[in-house]
Nucleic acid binder design. Structure first.
Length: 583
DNA sequence: TTGAATGAAAT
DNA sequence: ATTTCATTCAA
């Protein structure tokens, strides 16, 4: 960070006042902000109905949540354009939030209630005089909004709930085309009905105009029942468009703790969709992920490609399912986080909202925040592309978002010859290309010969059987010498039960599942000295690398839940694999 | 209010 | 090392 501010004529002077408005570069607006601005500008809501901006925001929010994806995407496009403009005007701008205006909230340890991690040192004595100096500076920027007393929270929560119905109702009316005086009328009418219904539940009717903050204290205690009445009321009115969906941001902490234990697999039966078969049933991100955190919460990863784009056969890029809001793609820009997302090809891709994806893993994950899949058109469509848009084959890794920084990973070769024409013809069918979260690089998904044996592989296999000879002895094809396609291991899954094999996968050289065979010798390659590959006896040993007989086992394998067995050593070898060297 | 970006906690 | 959480800030 070289000091950019060197020659500023005007010094900071007093820290007071406006802190130099001229210097502040506002953030680019996001889709919602743009929408909201337009929404409010359009003046469809008379002051009489609602003049308070905070409440207008809520109405806008309700309206926004009801927008069909298509319309939302229009706003998203505008937001993207705005961001781009912003970027051009202020190339060096970076969002730098004030870390904390107030006291950072302690995070709850996740260990199911008994967080005995209380850490003897109850750090942060609530007003360390020494730290006060620092805090003070920030604190004068604190808006008054954090003033909510703990005690009042319950009450205001209940009021919020009531109000929510009002916002939603108004949004609904707007959607029905009501505006201006018409809207006013409709709202009043609705409020009347509401009032009457509430009154029928209890003698004491709540004061109607409690919405203004000052009076909120007054009548709080009594009216618990009218929550129900109001709820059923709105249900009866049936405004299907806008049934209030709780904002995702409200639940995550609760939801995660409540759902930390995955439901028994039997619950699948409840689901409306028939359980998909074959590759379409594979939750890819789960399949590939190594994350311990994720493997214990499979619900977050149980989406299938085919659910989204049933007809796609190649060039389908799998973007990660973000557990924390929409994913962010990285286009080679700095300061964009790449985790926990996967990388895909940026060019000509299209973001498809997750709403198109149906989870087959039921019960449905509670409230998932929206995420997107990235979809790239199949080669046929690519060929029609305008010259300015590069086909995948010419995309450099860096442009693809792959990281080549200092890790020694030779991603540079990955993008080069990628071409969906070089598919294996060994009986496996490449169903799609994917990227996965956690793994850089491309992977080709293959139909599993164990699940649906091709003609040259007759017979049935029991779990745990070693298949001998290997179904695909020496099929070693590559688009270039760096690439190999292999069906998964010749070892049938050792999973202790149920999950029949569904799908296997193959990857580019060095990736999980890929133990390339020698062209002629029927030997299997093994990278030198990983010390991790379980070979034959199952014991780990350091090896010199080179070629080995193909029989091997993976006793310490882990079942990835799909009947796919990988030994721990199957991962990460991309760092070590060197096709040239092992010759 | 939603969404994007962030720093830091949690794993 | 990677994922999640809590927070800020755009109008």
């Amino acid at each position: 960070m070289p000091s950019t501010s060197a020659g500023r004529p005007r010094s900071k002077s007093t820290r007071g006042a406006k802190a130099k408005k001229g210097d502040h570069i506002p953030r680019p607006p996001n889709a919602f902000i743009l929408f909201r601005s337009s929404f409010i500008r359009s003046q469809q809501i008379p002051d009489k109905v609602e003049g308070n901006h905070s409440n207008l925001s809520k109405i806008a929010g309700a309206y926004w949540n009801s927008l069909p994806g298509e319309e939302k995407r229009e706003w998203e496009a505008k937001a993207a354009a705005a961001s781009e403009r912003h970027r051009q005007v202020y190339p060096d701008w970076r969002f730098r939030p004030n870390q904390y205006h107030g006291q950072p909230k302690a995070r709850e340890s996740a260990a199911g209630g008994s967080s005995r991690r209380r850490s003897t040192i109850s750090t942060a004595p609530e007003a360390g005089p020494s730290s006060a100096v620092v805090e003070e500076k920030n604190s004068d920027a604190v808006p008054a909004r954090s003033a909510k007393g703990k005690g009042k929270e319950k009450e205001s929560a209940r009021f919020a709930e009531e109000d929510n119905e009002r916002w939603v109702k108004i949004a609904n009316l707007l959607r029905e085309g009501k505006k201006g005086p018409q809207l006013t009328l409709a709202v009043e009418e609705w409020e009347d009905t509401n009032k009457r219904n509430a009154a029928s539940f209890e003698m004491k009717s709540p004061t109607m105009d409690d919405r203004t903050p000052q009076s909120s204290d007054a009548s709080s205690k009594a009216s618990s029942p009218d929550r129900q009445s109001a709820a059923s009321n709105s249900a009866a009115e049936g405004s299907p468009d806008l049934s209030y969906a709780p904002t995702p941001s409200q639940s995550p902490s609760n939801a995660t703790s409540a759902d930390s234990i995955p439901p028994p697999s039997g619950s699948l039966a409840h689901h409306a969709n028939p359980s998909p078969r074959g590759i379409s049933s594979v939750p890819l991100t789960q399949m590939f992920t190594r994350s311990r955190q994720h493997s214990t919460s499979p619900l977050d990863h149980s989406h299938s490609i085919a659910d989204l784009c049933p007809s796609i056969h190649s060039n389908l890029q799998l973007a990660p399912i973000s557990t924390n809001g929409p994913i962010r793609h990285r286009y080679g820009k700095e300061s964009v986080r790449h985790s926990p997302m996967a990388y895909g090809f940026p060019q000509q891709s299209e973001w498809r909202p997750e709403e198109a994806v149906s989870s087959y893993d039921s019960p449905a994950p509670p409230t998932r925040e929206p995420s997107y899949w990235q979809w790239n058109p199949p080669p046929s469509e690519l060929s029609e592309a305008s010259p300015s848009e590069k086909p995948c084959a010419e995309t450099l890794p860096r442009e693809m978002g792959y990281d080549t920084d200092g890790t020694g990973m030779a991603f540079d070769s990955y993008g080069k010859d990628f071409d969906s024409s070089g598919l294996p013809s060994n009986g496996s069918e490449v169903t799609s290309w994917v990227t996965s979260s956690n793994r850089h690089g491309l992977m080709a998904l293959l139909d599993d010969p164990l699940d649906d044996p091709p003609s040259h592989l007759p017979g049935t296999y029991t779990l745990g059987d070693t298949i001998d000879p290997s179904p695909h002895p020496t099929d070693q094809r590559g688009i270039s010498s760096n690439y190999y396609y292999q069906p998964l291991s010749p070892v049938a899954p050792t999973s202790n039960n149920m999950s029949t094999t569904s799908t296997s996968f193959s990857t580019l050289a060095g990736w999980a599942g890929d133990y390339p065979f020698h062209r002629d010798s029927n030997l299997r390659s093994q990278p030198a000295d990983t010390g991790r590959l379980d070979y034959d006896s199952g014991s780990k040993f350091s090896n010199p690398g080179g070629w080995y007989p193909q029989e091997w086992s993976a006793p310490t394998s882990e079942d990835h839940g799909m009947g796919m067995v990988l030994s721990p050593g199957d991962w990460d070898r991309v760092d070590e694999f060197d096709p040239q060297g092992s010759q």
